[in-house]
Design a protein around this nucleic acid. Sequence first.
DNA 1: GTTTCTGCAAAAGGTTTGCATATAC
DNA 2: GTATATGCAAACCTTTTGCAGAAAC
Lengths: 141, 141
Amino acid sequence: MEVCITSLLRDKGFKVTPQRLAIYNMLSSTRSHPNAEMIFNELQAMYPTMSLATVYKTMEILKEIGLVQVLNAGEDSFRYDAVMTNHPHVRCTECGKVEDVYDVNIDAFVNEVSQGTKYQIMGQQFYFHGICPNCQRKNSN
Amino acid sequence: MEVCITSLLRDKGFKVTPQRLAIYNMLSSTRSHPNAEMIFNELQAMYPTMSLATVYKTMEILKEIGLVQVLNAGEDSFRYDAVMTNHPHVRCTECGKVEDVYDVNIDAFVNEVSQGTKYQIMGQQFYFHGICPNCQRKNSN
DNA sequence: GTTTCTGCAAAAGGTTTGCATATAC
DNA sequence: GTATATGCAAACCTTTTGCAGAAAC
C-alpha cells in the first residue's frame, strides 16, 4: 500500500515526504471519513509541526492521483475517503458520523441513470441521512 | 402555489414578506438549482434593496417548512431546489451546471439501501458528475 | 402596538495562497 | 545543487450573526 502511494507520487513528479505518507496512512486506516481538521488533529501527536495547509495541499494531490475521494454529506466541510470503490455513505443527523453503506449493489442503478441522461457519466456520489443505531437507542431511553 | 407558501409561512408563525415570496417564486420557476448568490443576482433588478443575508435567512425558513431542499454537488456553495420529489442530480464538470435526472425509478434502490443499513433513513441525495451534451459537442470540435 | 423582518456591516468558519525556509532527490 | 514541499500568516469566499430601523399583523 505504501509502495503504491510512493510510486504513484514519484510517477507524477511529486516528492515523497513524511507528511504525505502520514496523511495517507492515517486516512487509509480509518473508516471515519475525517475532514481536514480531524486529520490534522489526529496527526498532531506524531507530527507536531504539521500545518493544516499541508493537509489541504496533500488532499489535493491525493485526489489528483486517484488515491482519495472527496465527500460532502451536506455539512460545512469536506470529508475524505481512501476507499475508492463505489459505495454510498450514510450520515447520522444526530451525532454527525458518516459511515459506509456496504453490501448493496449500486451498478444496476448507476447504469440505469447513466443511460437515462445524455451526459457522459464519470462518477457519482450517494448520500443517505438518518438516525444511527446508537442514537436510536439513546432516543428511546 | 403562492397560496401554499403564504399559508405555510403563516401557519408556522412566519410573516409573509415580498422578499420571501420573490425568492420562492424565482426558485420554483427555474430548473437551474441556483445558489444564494445566483438568486440574489437574479432578483437585483426587481428588488434592488434585497440583501444576500435575506436570501440565506429565507432559505433557512423555506427548508424548515419543507418547500426547498439543499444540494451540494461537490461545489463550494450550496444550491437550492424547490422540487421536493426524490430525484438524482447531475453536474457537468466542464460548464458547472446542475440538472435534474428524470425518468429513473430510485425507489427500489432506496429500499435496498435502507434495508442494508441499521439506520432509520430519513432521506437521501444522489449526485452524478460527467460531461453534458453541450460540452461533449464543444470538445469534439 | 407588538412582533418579526430587512439590510447593513462585522464576524465566523473552512479553504487557499504567497512566501521564506527546509527537505527530497 | 536544483526543484519541490512545508509551515506560517494573510487572504479569500461562503455563510452566519447582531443590531437599528422598517414592515407585517
